[in-house]
């Protein structure tokens, strides 16, 4: 028996049912691909902010480097900091000059003395930022404490919301696709009752009869998955120039090359599972 050829013939003979199944599957996986890209992108942005020196501690002019180093040591001993970097007045001046090199007016009259020394602290867990900030605020030599709590918390909120919305939508669409597969393959089995009866009478095994329907579901899943990948990747490549300028300074785009085959592999695996599951249930239900 040739289950693959038989499945392809079934598809050729009833193309509209195949189009319905494949387009539903494509829609599901396009939404999944877009949400995966958005979720990964926002995770990257969040990671970027999380790994930045989120707490910056500025010290009073009279604070000596030794005093600052003792604060640094104290922080490192807590174990909750990922890194603590000391920026001396001289280094601060260099950074200032580098950032404002295109504006000579801003460079005039600025010396290392008027810039404060600082510590740039990053944490393993962004939730601990506040604790670190409170801890250093109590030090008498500290002038000011800045940290990006708001950005992180709203980014975390957004990322979580995107993940939850994405997962919910994808699950809902996956269920719909599964149902469509079930209905279409069940319908085909019903329409081919006579053919199935003939195959039974001439000695075809159960697998000989079932296999073309299972292959058909898998073809729907894989084709829908592949088309959704083509669509999502094309959309991403098309939008990349705009997104690069929109997200300037954030290390998200361009997407690394390894991401594309990985996304394709994931979508095809999910398409295979969805297609085979839908057709297996249909075969079980309608081929009794």
């Amino acid at each position: 028996m040739k289950p693959l050829q038989t499945a392809l013939r079934h598809i050729r003979r009833a193309p509209y049912q195949a189009i319905a199944a494949i387009s539903t599957c494509m829609l599901t996986f396009t939404i999944a691909a877009i949400f995966i890209m958005v979720a990964l992108g926002s995770s990257q942005i969040l990671k970027f902010f999380e790994t930045r020196p989120e707490v910056t501690v500025f010290f009073k002019d009279e604070a000596s480097p030794n005093q600052i180093f003792s604060v640094k040591e104290k922080l490192e001993k807590t174990g909750i900091t990922a890194s603590v970097r000391y920026i001396s007045k001289e280094e601060a001046l260099e950074i200032y000059r580098e950032e404002n090199k295109s504006d000579p007016l801003l460079l005039e009259m600025v010396t290392a003395n008027i810039l404060p020394a600082s510590l740039e602290i990053s944490a393993h867990d962004p939730a601990l930022l506040k604790t670190i900030a409170e801890m250093v605020k109590s030090e008498p030599i500290v002038e000011e404490v800045l940290f990006q709590e708001d950005i992180i918390s709203s980014l975390t909120k957004w990322t979580n919301a995107i993940r939850i919305t994405g997962i919910t939508l994808v699950l809902a669409f996956a269920f719909q696709t599964f149902t469509i597969f079930l209905i279409i393959i069940g319908m085909k089995i019903s329409l081919k009752r006579e053919e199935i009866e003939i195959l039974n009478l001439i000695g075809a095994s159960k697998w000989d009869i079932k296999a073309p329907f299972i292959y058909e579901g898998i073809i729907y899943g894989l084709t829908g998955g592949f088309l959704s990948w083509v669509f999502a990747v094309t959309a991403l490549l098309y939008a990349t120039p705009f997104l690069v300028s929109f997200l300037a300074g954030l290390p998200v785009l361009p997407v690394p090359l390894w991401f594309y085959p990985l996304l394709l592999g994931g979508i095809l695996a999910a398409g295979f599972i969805l297609g085979s599951l839908g057709s297996l249930v249909a075969v079980r239900r309608f081929l009794k």
């Binding site: 053919e195 009866e197 003939i198 039974n200 009478l201 001439i202």
Partner: peptide
Amino acid sequence: DKIPILRRRLGVVFQDFKLLPD
């Protein structure tokens, strides 16, 4: 599960032909 094996030993000719139309 042994019925298909039995049927493979038999040839059957039906009055209403029962050929696969496609």
